[in-house]
Design a protein around this nucleic acid. Structure first.
Lengths: 123, 123, 123, 123
DNA sequence: GTGGTCTAGACCACC
DNA sequence: GTGGTCTAGACCACG
């Protein structure tokens, strides 16, 4: 359901948050839908449930998740708005990465080529 | 001399390593040149000398720097080779960031647009 | 668990690295075993945790330790190989010390006698 | 004249001190002889003159060298006694190295074999 | 609780 | 002045 890179310096719980926001941005998850259970998602990502729990806790505070007693979390009605904010964060993070790549000596041409290549890979 | 982003999740010492490799990749620093002194670079980056020292130590182990006892650090003869490897790392890091951005819901079009925008900003 | 000589000119973190490799060489520690925790080892050696952390970091890079995110450090599967290399280093260091002792005026006879004496001391 | 290992963790000036004491212990240098000049020795060892100067300064304090105005240093009359003390230090350093080698996993047999091998190498 | 990063500041060896 | 080592102690991510 989500793709996590354990080797990345970006915290796993941040990747989980970004991933869920992405699913809403892309419309694969809609307000009112049940979010994956903490334990189930942790198992499928091979990650500690506490890590997922932290992501969900923060998403609840941000108004992206609506966590009910009993443990079920629903995608909140405001999730679409929150996810839009997440898009901005993602853009920022991507821009940072591009600048870092530049400082490492990559040319702009190489960067846009890399984007094209990845696009083809994904199809 | 180098650009460091303290807010980034990428460790500062890794940014320093990548930055120095980038300077060699771009030819702004050549084998035989003196690398900036640990203390001087730390002061100019407003970072603790230990952090720079860690970067330099690892660069020495990697054969990018030639550090003499009680002396100055020189860009090693093999630095160009090592820097080339660094380019690969940078490409990998950038590709990761792009994939993460995708998972966050950004379209490929938005990504290549972001690259174009940044390119213009920099000139 | 390990024996460290703070008065020695050999850096403490190098002694820790050599000691752990020695434990694996001698079979007292095996791949898959948990390495002592950084904080615990630091406390028992009466050394700063950062010093142990540096040793562990380098051992991880060398592929001797398998350090998980937020977790425990395990003796890596390749540790036996790495430890074998460590044996070579130890032999080199010992040979250096012997040559230095020679230059200081000790005879070969004295050196082999010293080895015999130490052997008996240890039993 | 002397053999110095720049890669060793033992300070160069300590190696110089030990080496000179060794020459006296072995009788290759006698009280009243001129010690090599600081600049000449530094040049032949490819070491900074300050480093040799420090060794000579300490040797003077220890009563091993007799430094005259004009820069000439003579082996002092008490040098033989001081050199004997140096032998004890050398023995200690060698014993330490042997213990460290043991901790690294080398057997006593390997150590005495190493001594024998080195002896043959030197002839 | 774990390891990882960073800061601040000490001392040492060497140029 | 340089780099190298070590200490002390902070905060973060993770289990």
């Amino acid at each position: 359901m989500l793709d996590i890179d354990l080797a990345s310096p970006v915290p796993v719980y941040d990747q989980i948050k970004a991933g869920l926001k992405g699913l809403v941005s892309k419309g694969q998850l809609r307000p009112g839908d049940e979010a994956p259970s903490i334990r189930g998602l942790a198992a499928s990502l091979k990650v500690n449930p506490n890590t997922v729990a932290r992501a969900y806790r923060e998403l609840s505070i941000e108004g992206f998740l609506d966590t009910r007693r009993g443990g079920v979390s629903l995608i909140a009605d405001s999730a679409v708005q929150v996810a839009k904010g997440g898009l901005g964060d993602a853009r920022e993070a991507f821009a940072d990465a591009a600048r870092r790549a530049r400082r490492s000596g990559l040319s702009w041409q190489e960067l846009s080529e890399a984007v094209r290549t990845l696009m083809k890979e994904e199809q």
